[in-house]
Design a protein around this nucleic acid. Structure first.
Lengths: 172, 172
DNA sequence: CGCATTCACTTAACATGTTAAGTATCTCGC
DNA sequence: GCGAGATACTTAACATGTTAAGTGAATGCG
């Protein structure tokens, strides 16, 4: 009822394959993208109710575990690029969810920390978030989940050296 | 030499954990995100050389395998949201990489297909792309790669019913 | 037939991803 | 102690992600 992909406009067979390539929909990047989307789709509604985006939530979580961090370190932890983080921190600061002060020793660095309000917000989101994660774990299986994460880590590590671009190699 | 995360500004231990939550950096979404980034980092430079973004490449690949598709179907195949696709198609059309014509039977639908130029561009990118994919497969292991993709598919399927939000359930 | 709904897209608006520049500091060699 | 280069961010500019609203064309029903 939702759709009928049979009967295209003309009677062409579904594949012409004018350029030789793997089946696109089964490529690793697509598999990873779809899997991640399937997971995040579960969390977004809850975050949205609290006026948080996925990235903002990542930042708050990273901050909740520590006293204060410099922006660069936070970028690494939350897996965000500097410019994205810069913007998001500006907004989170305007909402009083985080605090910032320049480091004494080095005026270039600014130390970021979560505010009392930020902690309150986290406390109100965390339970739902944990429950969703638990449900995902239940459905997929804790054992398999651990296995999957292990494989993902291995994949990362196996590609670590293969620099995508500006790889600053020692002897070059 | 690149960094020394020891010796933070004050002598605080690295974790304060003011809100009880899983270790953030080991969450499934983060694992998937990092793994995908590790993979895509390999491809981006090559695509960039040809003036293509990751998404544009996805669209061309999806189109290369078929005669013509409607936009909605293409969105599903390339895993893009309608608005993103709409913009990208506008740009690809301006670059003469794709062609568009409204369907005869239904004036609302527009059928998209790859152009001769688009095919030429694909042909020039595909070899490098395949080589990179082969290297990734070699490094990670073909067997493990297949296993990983199987698990990712299972994960997707296990979350299929768990509607993130607007899930239109039959009896509600 | 007439018209409210539904459909297939497109536009708009705002947030992030991504690369390149810009700015203020800091470091180091001379 | 000064000037070139490195650092830590921030801004800018453009592309995409994401949700909501808009537009024109088909459908269904009285």
């Amino acid at each position: 009822m939702t759709k009928k992909s049979a009967d295209p406009v003309n009677g062409h067979p579904p594949a012409t394959r004018q350029v030789p390539m793997r089946d696109f929909s089964r490529s690793l990047p697509m598999s990873l993208l779809r899997a991640r989307e399937a997971v995040m789709r579960q969390f977004r509604p809850s975050l949205r109710e609290h006026g948080l985006t996925e990235q903002q939530w990542r930042i708050l979580r990273a901050l909740a575990a520590i006293e204060a961090v410099e922006v660069t370190e936070l970028a690494r932890t939350a897996f965000l690029l500097g410019p994205s983080l810069s913007r998001i921190l500006r907004d989170l600061e305007a909402r009083n969810l985080i605090e910032r002060k320049t480091a004494k020793a080095d005026q270039r660095r600014s130390m970021v920390s979560i505010s009392k309000e930020g902690l309150k917000l986290m406390a109100s989101v965390a339970p739902t978030s944990e429950a969703i994660y638990a449900e995902i774990t239940r459905r997929f299986g804790a054992r398999k989940l651990a296995e999957l994460q292990e494989m993902l880590g291995e994949l990362e590590r196996s590609l670590a050296g293969l620099g995508g671009a500006d790889e600053t190699i020692a002897g070059e």
